[in-house]
Nucleic acid binder design. Structure first.
Lengths: 131, 131
DNA sequence: TCTGCATATACTTCTTATTGCATATATTAA
DNA sequence: TTAATATATGCAATAAGAAGTATATGCAGA
């Protein structure tokens, strides 16, 4: 493992939007459109940041039907995990992070109600970390 | 504490030279010229990276005579410390880091022999972490 | 004041990121 | 094949960072 350069991890973490994305992916895989919905960002911006991180090997992607499912690679680099974990504690100016996770939960419940709105891999990620 | 934005920390960590500098400062304060000597980099390059990190509030600086002594601010952001700590473990392509610390020790011993080659604050940092 | 050492700044060039807009691709369903 | 949805890419403009050369500043000692 850890073919990922540490500096690449930090390159991803040093932008707030990427940080928010990684914080979400830590809980489970998500498609571009759902990240977009949670983050309140445009499709292009979201997609491009994902491309950026994918090129650096920090996130992985696979197609499922119409959707591209993005996720943290397994096994995820321990340094990345450790930092994402810290984020929860350090909420200076990052109120978004917890709000993002709440929005994610809402969306996941919506998927449970009507699958077909996302690929199986996404709504199967039923970790109920935060309600 | 922690007026430092997390993203600023990561901005500093995502460059190898800055990473090496922080790794050194973790052990104690150093002047530009000594960092320069340990890192094998030019004065301008070293100085500029220090300016960059100073502007982001990640390192502090004070003048002592001819020298500018750079150091990690007290108290140092826990996330920064945690990451610098991880570096020791994760040595993929970072053989430099340990080598840097060894060079630092050599230099510190030299200072002990003849002070006047550096400001007091530097050679007084006698943490003998690695020999 | 002049010299020398340590450090910073100005200026230029080059590369890398960021963003938006428009458009293309891929997949599925009709 | 066509339409609709999800996603990616190309292009252009701008900003931010990196690196080098030259030069300036700040301090100490003669």
């Amino acid at each position: 493992m850890q073919s990922v350069e540490l500096t690449n991890l930090y390159k991803c973490l040093c932008d707030v939007l990427r940080l928010r994305i990684l914080n979400l992916l830590k809980e489970g895989p998500l498609c571009v459109c759902h990240l977009q919905e949670i983050l309140g960002e445009t499709q292009v911006k979201t997609s491009k940041q994902l491309q950026y991180m994918k090129k650096l090997g920090v996130v992985g992607a696979r197609r499922e039907g119409v959707w591209m499912v993005y996720s943290l690679p397994e096994p995820t680099h321990p340094v990345l995990l450790a930092n994402l974990h810290c984020l929860q504690a350090d909420t200076d100016g990052f109120g978004d992070l917890i709000g993002d996770l709440k929005k994610r939960s809402v969306i996941l419940r919506r998927f449970a109600a009507n699958p077909g709105e996302c690929p199986p891999a996404v709504y199967q990620a039923t970790d109920g970390c935060q309600g």
